[in-house]
């Protein structure tokens, strides 16, 4: 397994930010998703974030909701999500799952952390689990040897930022804006201000997500962050594609553009 720490050490040594790409498992199908994620890795995505489809994704905007609803309607299961992790981790890219909390609790907190580790997963992002409720989860990931990734938001107080950075491992997910996932015309200028508030508190890499979709935006964010997270823009490519092969090609093309973007950033 490639860890997040190894990946960020490499991208830092290359003098650039890491590119993190997201797709929900099972969309447009189990195999179609794996193909698209592997294409991302081949085209310059450093870290893969696999969404665990959930019936009530209250941090997601319409694009991801649409893909997730389709994946659930087609019967995707937690086991298939873990198989997706295994297939992507086999490429050598650090592989994360992003999941709402209830599916983890239902699977079993310890069992899920162990299954992620067994699949070669590097860590788990939990958008609706904050450190306040995370005690059993922190014990489980510590014992499984995977990284728990928590979020900071523009509304986080200094005390909250300390708390989140204390328990996060791998990197800290910096939510660029107050809002849900989705493609936006511009990355909120609150992102840079938030990175500046978090930076002095922790040595962990800081990855910015929510609303990053173009190479220019990736370059802009890469100038001040250690990681650039792109989700809805990839999902949008799959949704708009006339067939799965075209979807994979479109994802590949976007990954190439974004990879150039993170390399073009001026530090």
């Amino acid at each position: 397994m490639t860890t997040l720490a190894e990946t960020f050490a490499r991208t830092r040594s290359e003098g650039r930010a890491a590119l993190i790409g997201y797709l929900p498992a099972g969309y447009p199908s189990y195999a179609g998703c794996v193909d698209a994620l592997v294409a991302m890795v081949e085209s310059g995505v450093d870290i893969v974030e696999i969404g665990l489809p959930y019936s009530d994704p209250l941090m997601d905007g319409p694009t991801i909701q649409q893909a997730v609803e389709a994946a659930l309607a087609a019967g995707v299961t937690t086991r298939e999500v873990l198989k997706t992790v295994e297939a992507v981790a086999a490429t050598g890219a650090a592989t994360l799952v992003m999941t709402y909390w209830n599916p983890v609790e239902r699977y079993g907190v310890g069992a899920f952390a162990d299954a992620m580790a067994a699949a070669g997963g590097a860590g788990v992002i939990t958008p609706d689990l904050t450190p306040d409720e995370a005690e059993p989860w922190l014990a489980a990931v510590a014992s499984a040897g995977i990284d728990p990734v928590f979020l900071v938001a523009p509304s986080s107080t200094a005390a909250r930022i300390r708390r989140v950075t204390e328990v996060s491992r791998g990197f800290v997910y910096v939510a660029s804006t107050m809002g849900v996932t989705g493609v936006r015309d511009a990355v909120s200028d609150r992102a840079e201000a938030l990175v500046a508030r978090v930076r002095p508190v922790t040595d962990l890499p800081l990855s910015v997500g929510l609303g990053v979709s173009t190479a220019a935006q990736a370059a802009e964010v890469a100038a001040y962050a250690d990681g650039v997270i792109v989700g809805s823009a990839f999902v949008r490519r799959l949704i708009d594609a006339p067939d799965p092969a075209a979807g994979v090609a479109a994802v590949r093309a976007l990954a190439v553009e974004l990879a150039a973007g993170v390399r073009a950033a001026r530090h």
Binding site: W101, T130, D132, L151, A153, S155, S156, T157, A175
Partner: peptide, 20 residues
């Protein structure tokens, strides 16, 4: 104080909402 009724309740929300 954290809103727990035994094992129930609490706060399972995005960090962005904690301040509110």
């Amino acid at each position: 104080a954290a809103g727990h009724f035994g094992p129930y309740g609490g706060r399972f929300v995005p960090e962005a909402l904690i301040a509110a």
